[in-house]
């Protein structure tokens, strides 16, 4: 009966089982082959290291569901990180710093959102461009140096424990629960899905698409601001490459978890699984003694693989490919002739 009751709440879809299964398989493999993998110490290290990625991935998931994307996430985190460092040097109260960081992040998100809504620049181009600008800004601010010796005011937040439970685990659980509630039980959350699923229909039903976009990019910014606090607590160094793989990794997290890059589909549960998968992957590869360069390559391949799986599954369900796997049945003949014209 209990199942029946909950069953009309929008479910994540079958694809999420693939992500969870894969995560289980990964844990199994690393447990066998990497001696120190399944130890409390290692697992809590992994949790600490994944915290900023997990938080940013939440925002990326929402953006992708909405049909958007944020390439600038990593450099935005860098810019906010630099600000946090400066404020820490000036010994500003941590609470004020936290407030400033989140506000600055939100502002950056809002800028992206305004470029996309007011100036109608496609999401990927807008954030690719701001990414460049932010990266150059970090470079200019650092002047070719590293920022080290930053006061460790956020170290406890990012690496401490509460009643023996790592703080980051608590943070992750709270954030994921809140965002699941927002996406599932609020009108705003459902509009995020609707805009990504069929923008025209959403418009026809009187939804203000631009407001939804602005809100979601701002939320992404706020999450980046918070993630920057965790990052500074954990790493406490600002260098030119800060956050450079954050965007691609958070996209990987979302995609592995079943979020569609074309919008309309995705779930928080999937993103949890995806985030843990990526975290264990990095950790496991290190424990197995793989060169650190392997990780970005694996990330890239995983994105291709999972987007590929989703495209194929779509074609299959729409009957455009039936028994044969890769296909010709893409209904593209007419599109070809369109290109000729």
């Amino acid at each position: 009966m209990g199942r029946k009751f909950s069953s009309y709440i929008p479910a994540p879809g079958k694809r999420v089982y693939l992500a969870i299964g894969l995560l289980a398989f990964e844990i199994f493999i690393f447990t066998i082959f990497a001696e120190n993998f399944l130890t409390i110490k290692n697992l809590s290290t992994v949790l600490i290291n994944v915290s900023d990625l997990a938080i940013v991935s939440l925002g990326m998931t929402m953006l992708l569901i909405m049909g958007g994307i944020d390439i600038s996430a990593g450099s935005a985190l860098g810019v906010v990180g630099f600000m946090i460092a400066q404020l820490l040097f000036k010994e500003v109260h941590p609470i004020i710093i936290a407030f400033v960081a989140i506000a600055a992040g939100t502002l950056i998100g809002l800028i992206n959102g305004l470029l996309i809504t007011k100036f109608r620049i496609p999401d990927i181009i807008a954030t690719l461009s701001t990414n460049s600008v932010f990266r150059a800004l970090i470079f200019g601010l650092l002047g070719g140096k590293y920022l080290v010796g930053i006061p460790l005011k956020f170290k406890r937040l990012a690496t401490g424990t509460l009643f023996g439970i790592p703080n980051t685990l608590i943070i992750i659980i709270v954030f994921f629960t809140v965002f699941w509630l927002v996406l599932t039980f609020t009108r705003y959350g459902r509009k995020v899905y609707a805009v990504g699923d069929n923008t025209e229909a959403a418009k026809a039903l009187g939804i203000n698409i631009n407001n939804i976009r602005l809100a979601t990019y701002s939320i992404m910014g706020a999450l980046i601001g918070f993630a920057a606090l965790l990052y500074m607590g954990r790493v406490a160094v600002v260098e030119i490459g800060i956050g450079s793989d954050l965007a691609i990794r958070s996209i990987a997290v979302a995609v592995i978890g079943g979020t569609s890059v074309t919008g309309g589909r995705g779930s928080i549960i999937g993103t949890i699984a995806g985030a843990l998968f990526m975290a264990f992957l990095k950790n496991g590869l290190v424990l197995l003694g793989m060169p650190s360069l392997a990780e970005p390559a694996v990330t890239g391949v995983l994105i291709l693989l999972f987007v590929g799986i989703d495209v194929l599954a779509d074609l299959k369900s729409t009957g455009k490919i039936k028994s044969r796997l890769l296909g010709r049945r893409l209904n593209i003949v007419d599109n070809k002739s369109k290109d000729i014209l």
Partner: peptide, 17 residues
């Protein structure tokens, strides 16, 4: 005009939940 990936329930109620 509808939302292909959203459920039938949601399509019925979208906008006046």
């Amino acid at each position: 005009m509808f939302f292909p990936f959203l459920s039938v329930l949601e399509n019925i109620y979208f906008g006046d939940e």
